[in-house]
């Protein structure tokens, strides 16, 4: 089996004034289709930097990055934008939804920037994506009418609406309480069960245990990489917790 993501000796340096910050000091990483990877590590260890590189939001200082066998280093700015649009769905810690814009329009947005117009009916597709995150009844709500968990689920719907190869999430539960966090994790698990490759960043071990594989970063280097043979099921954990689901959000 071929890896979806293959990184070879990836280095990322930031120049801040006269100081050079070594955010990543040589990352070798392979991630295969259908994996559910949690990237862990202390604050400042380089997790977000790595995610931004994987997500083609930024370019590495050196090293090779193959995404779906495509060498990403040699691409133009526009080709980068197209990869972000078609191969990657990104979920952020701060949701990053457009304000004053309905959930439906937010989810539709990536389809509007698809210059190949692969999906003929963007509206229908957006509704389907929202249904899959259990927000069918909230499609006309704007972000500030939604709870944090619901906003993050809208963001997940937006990330998957284009049928990307991978879904990336940088601390998606960082702004959510523990119960809502588990709820969002259950959405990711469901997507993973459907075959989507998922990579998420978290510093909470409680969240990481829902993944199938954890990678530890320390000072810009991978220090640990292991499989979780029996990941926890978020939906089961959720069932054991009391309280009304939507009231908590």
């Amino acid at each position: 089996m071929k890896p979806v993501i293959e990184m070879k000796n990836i280095v990322k340096n930031y120049q801040v004034g006269t100081v050079v910050v070594h955010a990543l000091r040589g990352i070798d990483l392979k991630i295969f289709e259908g994996e559910f990877v949690a990237i862990m590590g202390a604050s400042g260890s380089g997790k977000s930097t790595l995610m931004n590189l994987i997500g083609c939001l930024d370019t590495a200082s050196s090293g090779d990055y193959l995404l779906d066998d495509l060498n990403v280093n040699s691409l133009t700015k526009d080709e980068y934008a197209d990869i972000r649009n078609q191969k990657i769905g990104f979920v952020f810690q701060g949701f990053n939804l457009l304000p004053r814009t309905t959930a439906l329009e937010n989810v539709e947005l990536p389809l509007l920037y698809d210059r190949h117009e692969r999906i003929k009916n963007p509206r229908q597709q957006a509704i389907k994506a929202l249904e899959s995150v259990r927000l069918a009844d909230r499609i006309h709500h704007v972000p500030n009418q939604l709870s944090g968990g619901q906003q993050q689920r809208v963001a997940v719907a937006r990330a998957l609406v284009n049928n990307p190869a991978i879904i990336l999430a940088d601390e998606p539960t960082g702004n959510l309480d523990s119960r809502t966090s588990i709820d969002v994790m259950s959405v990711f698990q469901k997507l993973n069960d459907q075959g989507k490759t998922i990579i998420l960043v978290t510093h909470e071990p409680d969240i990481a245990r829902f993944a199938k594989r954890t990678i530890k970063l320390q000072d810009g280097k991978i220090t640990e990489d292991r499989e979780i043979t029996v990941p926890k099921k978020a939906s089961e954990v959720l069932a054991t917790m009391q309280g009304d689901e939507d009231e908590m959000e």
């Binding site: 526009d78 934008a81 649009n85 078609q86 920037y113």
Partner: peptide, 11 residues
């Protein structure tokens, strides 16, 4: 930033 991150080109 949001538009660029979901695949909008500069143009």
């Amino acid at each position: 930033g949001i538009r660029l991150s979901i695949g909008a080109r500069s143009k």
